[in-house]
Structure formats: C-alpha cells, structure tokens
Write a protein that binds this DNA or RNA. Structure first.
Lengths: 139, 139
DNA sequence: TCTTGACTTAGAATTATTCTAATGTTAGAT
DNA sequence: ATCTAACATTAGAATAATTCTAAGTCAAGA
C-alpha cells in the first residue's frame, strides 16, 4: 500500500494527521531498512528540530495499532519498524545487525486464525544468522 | 536433552562448572515457563542470596553460546529463556504476557542452512496474539 | 604456599522506553 | 473570526533492562 493510501486511511478513521505523524510514516515509506526508533528519531530531528522522542514512540505505537506499520523485536533490547505489513520473514545478521526481508514460501501458518486454542493476531517469523555481505568479508 | 547431559557437555568442553552456572541451568530445566532474566534472578536469589545480576546475564549468554539454551526476543524490551533448544514455535499472549510453546508442522525452513545467500544459524518463529486462557476470560 | 587466571560480586553506568506536566494545536460550536 | 475542549507535542525526568567496572573470591598448578 502506498503512502497516500495509508495517510488517507488514517484520516478516514478519524485520526488527526499531524505533521509529525506524516513525517514518521513517510520516513518509513522512504527507508525500507527496518530502522530502529533511535535511527528514526535522529533522522527526523534534522528536518523537525523540535520533534521529541515521546512523539516518535507514540506515533510508532499509534501507526502500529492502526495496522499501518509493523514492529520488529528481532534484535534484543531494540525495536525496529517496517513500513510493509504484508506477512514476510525477517533475517537478522548478528555481525552487522542489519535486518533483511526474506521470502519464504509455504509457511503452514499463513492464513491461520487459531493455534492450540490461542488466537493468532500477528506472525513474526525471524531468522538469525550471518548475512551474505558479512560472509564474503570473513566467512 | 536432560540436565546431566548438558552439564556433562559443558564440562567436556572445558567450561568450569560453577555452582551459579549449575543453578541457572537447573532453574531453566525445572521451570519450562520461558522465564525472563528478572524472574530467573529473583528466584535464584532465594537460594543463593549473593548471586548477582551480572552473573545471571553472563551465564545465560554463556549457556546460549554453548547451544544449551535458547534466547527468546518475543516480548519487546525483555529477554526470555528456554531450556529446550530443539526448533519450535513460541506464542506470546499480549494480554497476560505469557510465552507458550506451540507445535507447528511443515515449516519450510526446517533443516535449511541458507536463505538468499545468508547463513541461517537460528530460527525464531514467533506468533503474537491472545491465549486461550485470556480468551475465556473476556473474548 | 604462592601465583595466575577465571569467576563472581555490588554497584555504577549506559541504553531503551515510558511518564509527566506544561505548552501548543486542532476542529467544532458559537 | 473567536472560544473552548479535546487532543497532540515537547523537554526532560523517571523507570526498566542490560552492560560495564573494579575489587574480591576461588581453584588448580608451580
């Protein structure tokens, strides 16, 4: 879904479209590198010198609750965010700490609503390892 | 793998088997509830009043690096640990914050060594939702 | 017994996130 | 256009989780 559609969706649901919210969503739209909160905050700070961390956290939480972005808990102690919400796997490189999208077909959980009596609301299929770039550097 | 086997394995690899390391591993062996570091620390504190958080963190890291336990990053900002290292899915209930084991068959990643040129070293298939107990309480 | 290296400890430091109270902004009613 | 009430943002403080540090402990080998 493109940026305009997501912004329009927010508006329709009665959510005030502030400049900060627009900026956070746009940042994620333009930067598909699964940035951390820290990264998002510092990047936005350049354009909006008064933006506060609380706003960044609040906005990310809000956008997540509207289902417009995805929260990633793949790295210990740090949150990453992803503009793309369609279910897909994430790969975390323990050398360079980068988060990659990976395509895995045939996941038996796809489309499932329940498991063992628990209601499935979100899938977070994470893979940890060493990425191709780092492997080239020193196996 | 049972506790004795894991302890013996540690010993064979030249790792000193201190009382603290024994206690941490045994705690995880006896408590299969995917406890947080906090929970582990406080529980051990009752028996070993002088055990320090640093030791708990160091030990968990060490046991993880020996492949004897598994680290779980399913809950934002908190680490959970699991005695069981055989690949299996985890379900996190966003109401009660409990981590459940769930059995998912037919995962296409099972046994895979590489994906998109990245080396797979660990699978962390997480599912988020509302658990059966919480659903019974209030839908 | 002495030395060395590895381990543990208490608490300080750091990092990530959440909270708070004051201020600013918005949209609807007038 | 102005007022107002609700909502949003801000800076910085507070909290929570984790890591670091320096001193002390322990165990094995010389």
């Amino acid at each position: 879904m493109n940026l305009k559609e997501k912004l329009a969706g927010l508006n329709e649901k009665g959510c005030t479209l502030t400049i900060q919210r627009h900026a956070v969503l746009e940042y994620l739209y333009l930067n598909r590198t699964h940035p951390t909160v820290e990264k998002i905050y510092h990047s936005l700070k350049k354009k909006f010198s008064t933006i506060s961390k609380a706003t960044v956290y609040n906005t990310l939480e809000l956008l997540k609750n509207y289902g417009l972005i995805q929260e990633i808990t793949i790295e210990k102690g740090k949150l990453h965010f992803d503009y793309e919400v369609k279910p897909h796997h994430h790969f975390f490189c323990r050398r360079c700490n980068h988060v990659y999208d990976v395509d895995v077909v045939g996941c038996p959980l796809a489309g499932k609503k329940m498991i063992d009596g628990h209601r499935i609301e979100e899938l977070r299929p994470y893979i940890i390892g060493t990425c191709s770039k780092c492997l080239k550097k020193r196996g």
